[in-house]
Deep mutational scan, measured.
Amino acid sequence: DEEIEKWIETLLKRNISLRVNGKDLEIGSEEFKEWVEKFIKEV
């Protein structure tokens, strides 16, 4: 979905790490990609 890709790009540009389930996810890491894929499937 384009919306999500733009959102991810924005996050990448800002180099933010997300806190997911109490863990810091490094943007661009494998864990982050897995989380994004799960997130996309749920939406």
Rank of each mutant, 00 (worst) to 15 (best):
Glu26Ile: 12
Ile8Phe: 08
Ile27Gln: 04
Glu26Arg: 13
Ile27Asn: 04
Trp7Lys: 02
Lys38Trp: 09
Trp7Cys: 15
Phe39Ala: 05
Leu25Cys: 14
Ser29Leu: 10
Glu26Leu: 13
Leu11Ile: 11
Trp7His: 00
Val43Pro: 03
Trp7Met: 06
Ile16Cys: 15
Lys41Arg: 08
Leu12His: 03
Glu30Thr: 11
Leu18Trp: 01
Glu30Phe: 09
Glu3Phe: 14
Lys33Tyr: 15
Lys41Gln: 09
Leu25Gln: 03
Asn21Tyr: 03
Trp7Val: 04
Lys41Asn: 07
Ser17Phe: 02
Trp7Thr: 01
Ile8Gln: 01
Glu9Phe: 00
Ser17Pro: 09
Trp35Lys: 02
Glu3Ile: 13
Glu34Arg: 12
Asp1Arg: 15
Glu26Gln: 11
Thr10Glu: 15
Lys13Phe: 03
Ile40Val: 08
Val20Leu: 08
Glu42Ser: 13
Glu3Trp: 15
Lys23Pro: 02
Phe32Tyr: 07
Lys6Val: 04
Ile40Cys: 15
Leu11Cys: 14
Glu9Lys: 03
Glu31Asp: 07
Arg19Thr: 09
Trp35Asp: 00
Lys13Tyr: 01
Gly28His: 03
Glu34Asp: 12
Val36Cys: 14
Asp1Thr: 13
Arg19Asp: 03
Asn15His: 11
Ile4Gln: 02
Glu31His: 05
Val36Gly: 00
Glu2Asn: 13
Asn15Met: 15
Trp35Phe: 09
Glu37Tyr: 06
Arg14Ile: 15
Arg14Gln: 15
Gly28Thr: 07
Asn21Cys: 15
Glu26Ala: 11
Lys38Ser: 07
Val20Ser: 06
Glu5His: 12
Ile16Pro: 06
Ile27Tyr: 08
Asp1Cys: 15
Leu18Asp: 01
Ile8His: 00
Glu9Trp: 02
Val43Met: 14
Glu5Tyr: 15
Ser29Trp: 12
Glu34Ser: 10
Arg14Ser: 15
Lys33Cys: 15
Glu3Pro: 09
Phe39Asn: 03
Lys38Tyr: 06
Trp35Thr: 02
Asn15Lys: 14
Gly22Ser: 02
Ile16Met: 01
Glu30Asn: 08
Gly22Phe: 06
Phe39His: 06
Val36Trp: 11
Asp1Gly: 12
Lys13Ser: 14
Val36Thr: 02
Leu12Glu: 04
Ile16Glu: 06
Glu31Pro: 04
Leu11Ser: 00
Lys23Ser: 07
Glu9Asn: 02
Trp35Val: 03
Phe32Arg: 01
Lys38Asn: 10
Leu25Arg: 02
Asn21Leu: 10
Ile4Val: 08
Lys23Asn: 06
Lys13Pro: 04
Ile4Ala: 03
Gly22Glu: 06
Leu18Ser: 01
Val20Ala: 04
Gly28Val: 05
Gly22Met: 10
Val20Gly: 04
Ile40Leu: 14
Trp35Asn: 00
Lys23Gln: 09
Lys13Arg: 07
Lys23Glu: 06
Lys23Gly: 03
Glu37Ala: 10
Ile40His: 04
Val20Phe: 03
Asn15Tyr: 08
Asp24His: 08
Thr10Phe: 06
Leu25Thr: 02
Leu18Gly: 01
Val36His: 01
Lys41Glu: 06
Glu34Ile: 11
Lys38His: 10
Ser29Thr: 09
Asn21Gly: 05
Glu34His: 12
Lys6Arg: 12
Ile4His: 07
Ile27Ser: 05
Glu26Asp: 12
Gly22Pro: 02
Glu42Thr: 11
Ile16Phe: 00
Asp24Ala: 10
Asp24Tyr: 11
Asn15Asp: 09
Glu37Lys: 13
Glu34Leu: 10
Glu34Ala: 12
Leu12Arg: 05
Arg19His: 09
Phe32Pro: 00
Leu12Ala: 05
Ser17Ile: 12
